[in-house]
Computed example of a mutant assay.
Amino acid sequence: MNQIAAVLDGLQQKINHGSTFIQRKYNEIGQAKFNFPAPVTAASLAAFEAEFNQKLPSEYQTFLELHDGADLFILDDGLGLVLYSLDKVIESTIEAKEDGLIDEDFDYFWVIGEVNEGYLLIHTEHAKTEDTPYMYWKYHEGTTEDADPIDQNFGTFLEYSIIAQGDVFWEFKDFSIEKDNYFVDEDPPKEDVKPPLPIKFVDSVRVEIEYPISKTDSDYEYTVSIYEGKSGKERLMSRHEGGSRFNKLIEDVRNRLSGRQFHYSLINVFQTESRFWENEEETGDSLIINESPQKQGLSYDGYRAFADQLPRPLPGWK
């Protein structure tokens, strides 16, 4: 496995275990979002070479052959690391030259993405050899005349970006305790001081879905119980009545689990039909026993696995 594939595989494992709550500089915290598109097409690679008459750096092309762009560590403010698809690289680079963002005297750049209110660039002249660092960055304002070198090629840049959770790691070394008043302000307004959200690590969580008595009643309700711990009874996290649509119920469960900002190693979901049916029209009895109630148990390796493949209702329900 090559370096790019190994780094992305490690990130995927982290996401699948639900470890997506991140913290960056200036107390930027939250549940990060990720997107990994399909590999780049041969047509896009051919279009790129035809447009710029130059091959891509090998590490960058290796990444595109795994994913044609990616969204990494995106918080609610939209900031994070965005790597464009190759088609968008072509479009953005052409537009940047037309709009003057790529200065005519500094026109040896491709625009390949964005990070922290700035553009991510590849220096095309440096990219002609693997021995010269070609990754650059600049603020959205201004032109490429002001581009700053990151001093890395794409593979190391990607790995360091993942370690830094989508932050501009190359600026960390520039912090000076003498020049930068990072933590202390004179008489800071109290409303500007935001305490961090509590993060709780939970080995496992148990979601129990009890089906209603009647299938025919249009306003029947599921009952959902969510417990912490392997035994499922240590502490009741929430209990509420779901709506008459199973999909809506599961969305509510998903939102409830993600909204608490917990880290779950394992999520177990148990669905059980009621042992009784209402069936007055067929039998005249107000209540009869369901002799073979359906049951289903599912296990998910972390919150992300649960969110990516939500459970379906038992047969006959909706």
Score class of each variant (00 low, 15 high):
255 N>L: 11
256 R>N: 06
257 L>A: 05
257 L>P: 06
258 S>C: 08
259 G>R: 02
260 R>L: 14
260 R>A: 15
262 F>M: 11
262 F>H: 13
263 H>V: 11
263 H>N: 12
264 Y>F: 13
264 Y>A: 05
265 S>E: 15
266 L>P: 06
267 I>E: 04
268 N>H: 10
270 F>P: 00
272 T>Y: 10
273 E>M: 01
273 E>Q: 06
274 S>L: 02
274 S>W: 00
274 S>Q: 05
274 S>Y: 02
275 R>T: 13
275 R>A: 13
278 E>G: 05
278 E>H: 05
281 E>L: 10
284 G>R: 04
284 G>N: 09
285 D>G: 07
285 D>V: 08
285 D>R: 15
285 D>K: 15
286 S>C: 07
286 S>Q: 12
289 I>E: 15
291 E>G: 10
291 E>Y: 10
294 Q>M: 07
296 Q>H: 10
296 Q>W: 02
297 G>T: 14
298 L>S: 07
299 S>R: 12
299 S>H: 08
299 S>L: 04
301 D>E: 12
302 G>W: 01
303 Y>P: 05
305 A>R: 12
306 F>A: 03
306 F>G: 02
307 A>C: 08
308 D>F: 09
308 D>A: 14
308 D>M: 11
309 Q>W: 06
309 Q>D: 13
310 L>V: 02
313 P>Y: 01
314 L>A: 02
315 P>I: 08
315 P>F: 03
315 P>D: 09
317 W>A: 07
317 W>Q: 01
